[in-house]
Design a binder for these strands. Structure first.
Lengths: 135, 135
DNA sequence: TTGCTCCTCACGTCACGTGAGGTGGC
DNA sequence: TTGCTCCTCACGTCACGTGAGGTGGC
């Protein structure tokens, strides 16, 4: 059995460490996504070999997470992208999800702005108290 | 033993169901926060009686969560608000925490803005696909 | 041979969800 | 008495974290 690395043109595959590094996640996280069927890297022996498709899907997964989808929703959405065009029902579903997520994110941004304002005035009071103590 | 409800002026206390309703969380969630010492409602027998202070803290907890802090961080922050100022060392520490939190929040807001932009263009493509299908 | 990276279990954790089974006052 | 709300366990779940223990190629 000639297990070789030379069969693929270099630059088109990644190791788990390379992807973990690039996307700032742990190896465990990537393996977890594989276990759930979100990505399916090739195997060379036991070692995983990631192709461009896997890398793209990983990027989509992480983006989905930042937006607030859970992994099951992400699986559905990614698969929708992958299954070529998609029919009207699927697109409508996706659009609906997008609306919900958008509203959620806007709420979150408002919360953050409120908190930033509060932290700002708290800092101000804090600095004033410090100045008062120094005299 | 005269266990009465008449000892407090009405309108100043809440039941667990009232708060759960108002903030759209489950009873379990509120009890969980109590277990962690984030809130400490009064007891009348076994039943919890929530005062304005508890309600305020619950609001702060939920906002902290939406912003993305874990419950331990939230406990520290809320306690900082509650403890009256204090001495220079504490103030300096608090100011330092505020700076960290502020930087963190600004990163998070950027992330949300990016995600909102992405969702926007995704929705656009989605609607275009739908229009194409309808013809 | 030594190091490094890779691997597979498998238990732990965090923030609750979800019943099971029981109590108390209008 | 019947309903409703409240309660306390306590196991389940989701998305990984974190070792333990072992393999493979430069």
């Amino acid at each position: 059995m000639t297990s070789g690395r030379s069969s693929t043109p270099s630059g088109e595959t990644w190791t788990i460490a390379e992807l973990a590094d690039e996307f700032d996640v742990t190896h465990r996280t990537i393996r977890h996504y594989e276990q759930l069927g979100l990505i399916s890297p090739e195997r060379r022996g036991t070692t995983r070999v990631f192709h461009r498709r896997d890398r793209t899907r990983l990027a989509l997964i992480l983006r989905g997470k930042r937006i607030g989808f859970d992994l099951e929703e992400i699986r559905r959405i990614i698969d929708m992208y992958d299954e070529q065009p998609g029919e009207a029902g699927q697109l409508a579903y996706l659009l609906d999800q997008i609306k919900e997520r958008t509203a959620e994110l806007e709420r979150r941004r408002q919360d953050i702005d409120d908190s930033l304002a509060e932290l700002g005035s708290l800092a101000k009071r804090c600095r004033a108290d410090l100045r008062a103590l120094r005299r």
